[in-house]
């Protein structure tokens, strides 16, 4: 929550402070959206909610931080993303692939176990300390002026990279053969198999893809939000909240819901202590689960139809 710390309890709200809130909210919001899309990709191809989704984000950040002293930053990030993708694929191959029609409860517990193992491994490799990547441009005090308020250029990096990721993903699913295969697999697995698509490989691919986007998000956000071994759980809950808000499986819904949750959180700081910020988003999750489990934007009857 580092980016929010400079937002103090200044009232009445000036227009500059208002913009600061907006930018903080959008930054976190787009990160939540990326985590939510990670959930969606795996959910769409497998029907699994991967409770280890947040750990991919942490892992991406941590690996990039470790590689950074050895090589230029862009290369470190690319390698970190690739390694995390391998981890994602490995998890699917070792733990998921060979199970024969596992029950939902079993899968929930397995992915929870995986998230614990990744977290504990990170604790033993990197320790409890808080780490971060350097700022991509400038340092923590440099800022750019936008609409009369000053923000860190890293905020623009986060928003830019995440937006590009969302666009590329939707292009990938719409226009590439691989993306269409994955969509076919999501729509009807049996039919996809009959068309000669290797659905098992598509599932592995979906784990790689969602690990990759999580890791990239983890890298770009690291300079402002920092990376810690147990940072994944909180992100996973927020990401899941967003995925549910947007309608599970609906990635455009996730973007809208992510930005909404980010803004809500940012503005909640002005009325509630920071410590309760997590409680707010979880309360939102509970209320939505109780009232509109098909999401804010979906309709009940269309919730069954999966859409990337």
């Amino acid at each position: 929550m580092a980016a929010l710390q400079y937002v103090t309890w200044q009232l009445p709200m000036t227009s500059e402070l208002f913009l600061q809130y907006i930018f903080a909210g959008l930054t976190y919001g787009i990160i939540y959206a990326i985590v939510a899309i990670g959930f969606n990709i795996i959910y769409n191809t497998t029907g699994i909610i991967n409770f280890a989704q947040g750990e991919f984000v942490m892992l991406g950040g941590m690996i990039a931080i470790s590689l950074n002293p050895l090589m230029p930053l862009p290369l470190a990030i690319v390698l970190a993303v690739l390694i995390t993708m391998m981890v994602g694929a490995l998890i699917e191959i070792v733990f998921i692939r060979w199970l024969d029609k596992p029950s939902v409860l079993r899968l929930i517990i397995i992915t929870i176990g995986i998230s614990i193992l990744i977290r504990e491994a990170a604790l033993h490799i990197w320790g409890e300390g808080i780490r971060s990547l350097p700022y991509f441009i400038g340092n923590e005090v440099s800022s750019v002026s936008i609409l009369g308020t000053r923000i860190s250029p890293q905020v623009l990096w986060v928003m830019g990279v995440c937006t590009v990721m969302v666009i590329l993903l939707s292009l990938f699913f719409r226009y590439t053969l691989m993306g269409q295969k994955m969509q076919a697999c999501a729509a009807n697995r049996t039919a996809a198999t009959l068309c000669g698509i290797n659905t098992r490989n598509m599932v592995t691919l979906s784990f790689m893809l969602s690990a990759g986007i999580g890791a990239l998000a983890g890298c770009v956000m690291s300079p402002i939000t920092y990376t810690q071994y147990d940072g994944g759980t909180g992100l996973a809950i927020k990401g899941f909240t967003v995925a549910i808000m947007g309608g599970l499986g609906n990635s455009m819904g996730a973007v809208a819901a992510g930005l909404l949750l980010g803004l809500l959180e940012a503005f909640s700081v002005s009325v509630l202590p920071l410590a309760f910020q997590d409680a707010i988003s979880i309360s939102i999750l509970l209320v939505i689960l109780f009232v509109r489990p098909h999401g804010l934007f979906g309709r009940r009857d269309t919730a069954a139809l999966k859409e990337f």
């Binding site: 409860l105 929930i108 809950i237 997590d278 979880i282």
Partner: peptide
């Protein structure tokens, strides 16, 4: 009453969310 209407992932996440709220409240 509301939580047990949920199933599968939703139930797991809702109870997990409840646990985290309790934790946060005691911690804060």
């Amino acid at each position: 009453i509301p939580v047990l209407k949920l199933k599968g992932h939703y139930l797991a996440m809702a109870t997990l969310g409840f646990g985290i709220i309790v934790y946060r409240v005691f911690l804060a």
